[in-house]
Simulated scan of single mutants.
Amino acid sequence: MTAPVSTSTSASERTGVRSVRRVGLVGWGAIGRVVGRAVAEGAVPGAELACVIDNRALGTEAPAPQLGFDEALAHCDLIVEAAGQAVVREWGERVLRSGTDLLIASTGALTDEALAGRLLATGPGRVYFTGGAVGGLDLLQAVREMGPLTDVRLTTTKLPATLEQPWMDEELLHRMRTATAPVEVMSGTARDIPVKFPKSTNVAASVALAVGDPGRVRVTVVADPGAARTRHAVHASGEHGTYRFEVEHLPDPGNPATSQVVPYAVLRSLAALAGKTGQIL
């Protein structure tokens, strides 16, 4: 799913002419490699990979020139972020001020309401996020238009090693490392959890963006040594209905903190932005 969080209109849309999207990809990790190679091979009609931005020297590994951010903004009309929340915080507003659109994979950054507000207020570029590893967000957005969802809960279950964080004390780390059954690691709101798990809880932020209020979404993070698949279960209810979504994904073999499906969700969002027709948006 591609969900716009800004409503400004580009010159090409005003004139009815859509040109090829020149894409700058930030990050050459588990997500970026899949996205970058697919775009470079022509898998996304209407999009071409103009450059890759990464703080490591990639040499011939990248299928497009490796540029710095300032150079990329001069060559691209869409930046795809696949490198973590810090990139959104440091570069998001600058990208939008340049007139370049921004597609965010690390949605956890947007639970910082001050940052989200600044991104919404910045233009002429537009900001979008991709739902990543969870479904049902379009339905939650539709229900939200009828009235608030009064009870929204998300339970995320992952392998213990993928959830370890520098702030954890020895007691919690020991419980996680020696667990033989699921262990609740932390609970809180979608405003709090993505800050504590910046590489593992973008789903919490995506649900919060769909619901429209990070404080309304209660999140529980569970470490399970038997979790061969990453699980996300969403329960939501309001006066208009009750909704339940549950997904299980294989983790990416190179980065188990990320589900294998995430880069393909980014590609689908990119296809929507590039003007692909005949799909559900």
Rank of each mutant, 00 (worst) to 15 (best):
H235A: 12
N202Q: 08
F69G: 00
G132Y: 00
A64N: 07
R268P: 00
L102Y: 15
A64H: 09
A274G: 05
V152T: 07
V88D: 01
L159K: 05
E13D: 15
L96I: 09
D54N: 15
A114L: 12
S106P: 15
I280M: 11
F197D: 04
R33W: 00
M1I: 07
V88K: 03
G125Q: 03
A208W: 08
N55E: 13
L163T: 02
L67S: 04
G131A: 14
D54A: 14
A43M: 12
L67E: 06
T258S: 12
L120P: 00
W28T: 02
L154K: 12
C76M: 12
T162L: 05
G147Q: 01
G125Y: 08
V222Q: 10
R244A: 14
Y264P: 02
R153H: 15
S269T: 10
G46T: 08
G123L: 10
V261F: 04
A40H: 09
G92W: 12
V17A: 13
A116K: 08
D77R: 09
G135T: 11
R22Y: 05
I31P: 00
Q141G: 14
D151T: 10
R244P: 00
P194T: 06
L154G: 12
G84M: 10
V88P: 02
G42S: 04
N255E: 13
A204C: 12
P198A: 02
E41P: 01
V23T: 08
T156V: 14
T150D: 12
Q85H: 08
M186S: 06
D138A: 14
D54G: 03
P65N: 06
A105Q: 12
D138R: 13
A40P: 09
V34Q: 06
A181G: 06
R22G: 02
A265I: 01
R89E: 13
L149C: 05
P256A: 14
G215D: 14
P256S: 12
A47L: 10
F69E: 03
P251C: 08
F245P: 01
R56L: 14
V44T: 13
G147I: 09
S187L: 00
P194K: 07
A257D: 12
V261K: 05
G92F: 13
T258P: 05
T157R: 10
L110V: 13
R37Y: 02
P214T: 08
A179E: 00
R144Y: 05
E113Q: 13
R56K: 14
S10V: 02
S269N: 04
R216K: 12
R191A: 14
A43C: 11
R33C: 01
S237G: 11
P4L: 12
Y128P: 04
A74S: 14
V185S: 04
P251H: 02
R126G: 05
T9L: 15
H249S: 05
S12P: 01
D213L: 09
A116Y: 11
E145T: 15
R229W: 02
R175V: 03
G16F: 08
